[in-house]
Nucleic acid binder design. Sequence first.
DNA 1: TGACAAACCTAATGGCATTAGGATATAATG
DNA 2: CATTATATCCTAATGCCATTAGGTTTGTCA
Lengths: 200, 200
Amino acid sequence: MPRQGLNKESVTAAAIRLIEEKGLSSFSLNELAKSLDIKPASLYTHIQSIDGLLNEIKALAVRQMVARQMEAIEGKSRAEALFALASAYRRFAKEHYELYLLVMNIPKGNNPSLQLIAEEMVRPILKVLEGYRISTDSQMHYQRALRSMMHGFVAQEEYGAFTHSPVDRDQSYAISIGLIAESLHRLEGENNDENNSHGK
Amino acid sequence: MPRQGLNKESVTAAAIRLIEEKGLSSFSLNELAKSLDIKPASLYTHIQSIDGLLNEIKALAVRQMVARQMEAIEGKSRAEALFALASAYRRFAKEHYELYLLVMNIPKGNNPSLQLIAEEMVRPILKVLEGYRISTDSQMHYQRALRSMMHGFVAQEEYGAFTHSPVDRDQSYAISIGLIAESLHRLEGENNDENNSHGK
DNA sequence: TGACAAACCTAATGGCATTAGGATATAATG
DNA sequence: CATTATATCCTAATGCCATTAGGTTTGTCA
């Protein structure tokens, strides 16, 4: 009510803006305070700590990411849904790379509330995999494979690990995701033939 | 020659020891100096900056990683070599997670000398893929797919993204790598039949 | 023995997150 | 309208960090 209409939400929004513009590595409470025209110490009226603020941002980013993926697979199923999901995943990482970095840099000794948020990120993946008639164990394996492929690809792509070749990266991604789609399709076929080599 | 027999190598070795013991996030020149019984400013006789030191460590880590992978695939070929490579990759990441983090955290605006080192990391992968009779474009695609899968898996596994299930992670990894092995095998078959659906 | 260079030091700078405690402006109440 | 209370914002300080300037010590070599 005094000076400015600042609150937790507007401070968080300003932090996101700053991170997306100037990058995560140059972000500091000094910069954030400067962008809001207040002193760094005054930020503590609205935030608990810089880690608390970043956790807040992570949670928002995950929610947004999941929402985009859910929209992408809406009304689709199986391979079509799988490719749409993978595409939305990569698009978010491209458009909000600093936020993606933040989300994917959850350190080992982590906040239990972030654990819950991380589980949220699995939901669109599971939704796609539920469209396949495979065992629950297979579902877990393919969920991990898909997450690995998507994260590994965008992470390496974004820090420039794939730039040393003219070969199209979109095609590489399509093929990479295609590996999983094809294998899922084939695994279903095996199950229909009452064969369960590793499908059980 | 005075006080201690310190040099660039011993300081780097001490830094690696500290990083592996206490973790990357708590590493500082203060801690490093303390472990060597000198003052922080004295470190600058042996290092250029903390970034220079970390780049040195990255280079050593990559060399060690590549060496392990080369040993692992020695005398093997095709699927056997592929699984051995993937296993060595994951083992290194498990045993030297802090170093792996360091290697994989090459920021976007990066040192050109690190670019060369990063390319070194592709060598064992290419060596394995050379054992398959596929086009050079396919080689590039599968190289990216394999790197993505390996990095994505170990990165998420190590920060605890896969712990919320009793399903065996070793098996998930074997299946994930198997996707690539199977697809490579099938792609070769297509080429032998003078068919080139996406193999060209 | 004397000169020299390398290793190490002290002291300082400017950046960072964070806290304690004080000032102030707005909103709520009498 | 005056008073009180509360939340916002401040100044000042602490202790961490990397880094630099410039001085001292120590070992080596002529």
